[in-house]
C-alpha cells in the first residue's frame, strides 16, 4: 500500500469509482453491531485497503435520506481529510460516507 496519504486517497477514489462492491448494509443500528464491525476490521492486515473499504461499507457520495457524509462524521478530521477511527485510519473525501458514520 502506498504510504503517502494523497496517493492512498487517489487509490481509494479509483477503487470506488471503478465500482468496488462494499458492505453498505446493514447499517449498525446498535453499539453491539458497530462493535462487531470493528472486530472484523481489527482482524485485517492494517495495509489491507480493499478489506477496510469493503467491511467499512464505503461509498464515494453522500448516503441515505439525510445525505450523510464524512464531513459531519465525528471521526473525520477536516483539515487532514482523514478518518481518525483507529480501525480505518485512511484518507477520505468529505463527500464520501461509510457505515461506521457517527455524529
Amino acid at each position: 500500500m502506498a504510504s503517502d496519504p494523497e496517493d492512498i486517497l487517489k487509490t481509494i477514489a479509483a477503487m470506488l469509482e471503478a465500482g468496488l462492491e462494499t458492505e453498505v448494509e446493514p447499517f449498525p443500528e446498535t453499539d453491539k453491531e458497530f462493535a462487531d464491525i470493528l472486530i472484523k476490521l481489527r482482524q485485517l492486515d492494517p495495509n489491507d485497503l480493499k478489506g477496510k473499504l469493503v467491511i467499512g461499507g464505503f461509498v464515494d457520495h453522500p448516503y441515505g435520506p439525510e445525505q450523510q457524509r464524512c464531513m459531519e462524521c465525528m471521526y473525520y478530521l477536516v483539515h487532514r481529510k482523514w478518518c481518525d477511527l483507529p480501525e480505518l485510519a485512511v484518507p477520505v473525501e468529505p463527500e464520501w460516507w461509510c457505515r461506521l458514520w457517527r455524529i
Binding site: 443500528e29 446498535t30 477536516v78 457517527r102 455524529i103
Partner: peptide, 27 residues
Amino acid sequence: TVMGAPKDMPTGVDKAGYIKLTAAAKA
C-alpha cells in the same frame, strides 16, 4: 448511539439542533 447519533444528548440539546451544530462546527 442510535443510528449513528448519541442516545444521550448534552443536556438541553435536541437531535436536530445537534446535527445542525455539528455541520457548522466541522465546517
